[in-house]
């Protein structure tokens, strides 16, 4: 896949993963610009589904695990597309990474989300982690740790809707919906019909750089 290499010397304002798309609207006063609309998201997911089938040679042992919150909905949509392509039901579940985060002590205790492992487990399977935005990579690191406590997959792959760069760990995605070069002050917000009433990816700008700088903003953003 097209590995993202636009992680320039910028610090980041928005994190990948679970909370990345939960930035409250008041944090983005400037009108957020849609970079992906509903048809684009549908097309992108179809493409990723085909890539998964191609790379996993028929996807017969693939298990999709979405990372809450929006990753779970993306995983379910991907599973539906995979079923259309292969004619078989693809196991889909969710993997909450909250208790494996490396920033738990930077804020109040977080509310947990649901971990739902498909009945047949992940032992010896190809697990495809699904998330909405890939950013620092810390969410995925936590997800790998969480997986380790659940079983031993044959392989682990990563599918994301948006890769916005600025990695802080040696982690890359296997399937990328859209590479989105961003700067420190930009925010990426994913909206999905299941949760937000519409499908879109919005690129906004954070107001003024906050006092604490990037670290502070990262804490605000959830990672």
């Amino acid at each position: 896949m097209d590995a993202p290499d636009q992680s320039a010397g910028h610090a980041s304002s928005k994190s990948s993963g679970q909370t990345s798309s939960e930035t409250s609207p008041e944090e983005t006063p400037a009108p957020a610009r849609p970079v992906l609309e509903a048809p684009d998201i549908a097309r992108v997911l179809t493409r990723i589904a085909h890539e998964i089938v191609e790379r996993a040679k028929g996807a017969h042992d693939v298990v999709l695990l979405g990372i809450p919150t929006r990753g779970v909905f993306l995983a379910r949509r991907l599973a539906a597309k995979l079923e259309e392509i292969t004619g078989r039901a693809i196991p889909v579940g969710s993997l909450d990474i909250t208790m494996y985060r490396d920033d738990l002590r930077l804020g109040p205790a977080r509310t947990l989300a649901r971990t739902e492992i498909p009945a047949d487990g992940i032992e010896g399977r190809v697990v495809v982690l699904v998330d909405d935005v890939l950013f620092s990579g810390r969410t995925i690191r936590a997800a790998l740790d969480a997986l380790n406590d659940i079983g031993r997959p044959r392989a682990v792959q990563l599918a994301v809707l948006v890769d916005r760069g600025h990695r802080e760990l040696p982690i890359r995605a296997d399937y990328v919906g859209k590479n989105l070069p961003t700067s420190l002050r930009e925010t990426v917000k994913v909206q999905l019909t299941e949760l937000d009433g519409r499908d879109s990816v919005l690129l906004g700008v954070r107001p003024a750089p906050t006092r604490g700088g990037a670290d502070q903003e990262r804490a605000d953003a959830g990672q």
Binding site: M99, Y100, T111, L112, D149
Partner: peptide
């Protein structure tokens, strides 16, 4: 309700092969 909901997730850890969290 938050404590009860959190406990609901904790209860699921007991069903796993590794009943431990690094938290």
């Amino acid at each position: 309700v938050l404590i009860l909901d959190t406990a609901e997730e904790m209860a699921r850890v007991a069903d796993r092969p590794i009943k431990k969290l690094p938290t």
